[in-house]
């Protein structure tokens, strides 16, 4: 079970704790105390807390993805060697690391849930508790699975077919997409079909639903507008994970070793 080494490596990664947990705490603090809320009721504060929770949950997941991308990027030679000259099998690698990433994502999710409860309860004076905490945690599990598969596929595609200069782009692509889709919920929403089809929209909107207990709105700044069906969002996310799992299993066998020393010259 190589998953334990991956989990150990991620949990000892100070950068991941700094950005994935510390930085997210700062944003939730700003959301609760600096930006605050105009709400005058507990329900109003819960809606605002849910919005912050959904965006921060997505961004923390994307930070896990960036950490994983770097890890995979620096492992290309190890994988090419490992599949040939050790007992490591491509399928076992994908299974183990998917499990590891989902567990680490859920551990970080516990902190995000806790921070949201404490900070928004303290700021509002109400008891701000997620409506579906178990589902919220399960969603962090799924986010970890999605982010790992997305990172693996992106790194292999960039590594094998697009050349060295694009490695930073691959590492930061999850964050870029998270900011674009996450913040598009407010003000100028994307068309409903795009929201349903994009996993980077599915995740925060499902997170919103698990915290608030209500369906998310197409435009989160207009709470009288059309709502988004959470069942379709969930089905879309599961389809994405399934398709990406099949892709990851096919691509991992073709991974090419990339000399890191070679990359340093570029």
């Amino acid at each position: 079970m190589i998953a334990r080494y991956f989990i150990s490596s991620l949990l000892k990664d100070k950068t991941l704790w700094g950005w994935g947990v510390g930085f997210m705490f700062m944003w939730l603090y700003l959301g609760a105390f600096v930006f605050g809320s105009n709400a005058t009721s507990q329900q109003g504060w819960l809606i605002d807390a849910s919005s912050w929770f959904s965006i921060i949950g997505l961004i923390s997941g994307s930070l896990v993805a960036t950490t994983i991308s770097y890890s995979i990027y620096y492992s290309t030679s190890s994988l090419a060697y490992g599949f040939r000259y050790t007992k490591l099998k491509p399928g076992s690698y994908v299974f183990n690391l998917t499990a590891g990433a989902s567990l680490v994502s859920a551990i970080i999710g516990c902190f995000i849930i806790l921070f949201t409860i404490v900070l928004f309860s303290e700021s509002s004076g109400y008891s701000i508790i997620p409506a579906m905490p178990v589902q919220a945690l399960l969603l962090f599990f799924l986010t970890g699975i999605f982010m790992f598969l997305f990172s693996l596929i992106t790194v292999i595609l960039v590594n094998n077919y697009l050349g060295m200069r694009s490695s930073s782009f691959a590492n930061f692509l999850p964050q870029l997409l998270s900011y674009i889709f996450g913040f598009s919920e407010f003000g100028s929403p994307l068309p409903p079909d795009v929201v349903y089809a994009s996993p980077f929209s599915d995740i925060p909107r499902l997170m919103y639903m698990t915290f608030s207990g209500k369906e998310s709105y197409l435009n989160m700044s207009d709470l009288s507008g059309p709502v988004i069906n959470s069942y379709i969002l969930f089905a879309s996310l599961l389809i994405w994970i399934s398709v990406m799992f099949v892709m990851a299993m096919a691509l991992i066998r073709r991974i090419k070793a990339k000399s890191i020393e070679e990359g340093r010259h570029v």
């Binding site: 190589i2 080494y5 991956f6 150990s8 490596s9 000892k12 990664d13 770097y70 890890s71 620096y74 492992s75 030679s77 190890s78 994988l79 060697y81 490992g82 070793a257 000399s259 890191i260 020393e261």
Partner: peptide, 13 residues
């Protein structure tokens, strides 16, 4: 050493 960089582990791991 590049083949032993799987997962960015410590030497012991």
């Amino acid at each position: 050493i590049e083949v032993y960089r799987l997962m960015g582990s410590s030497v012991l791991d």
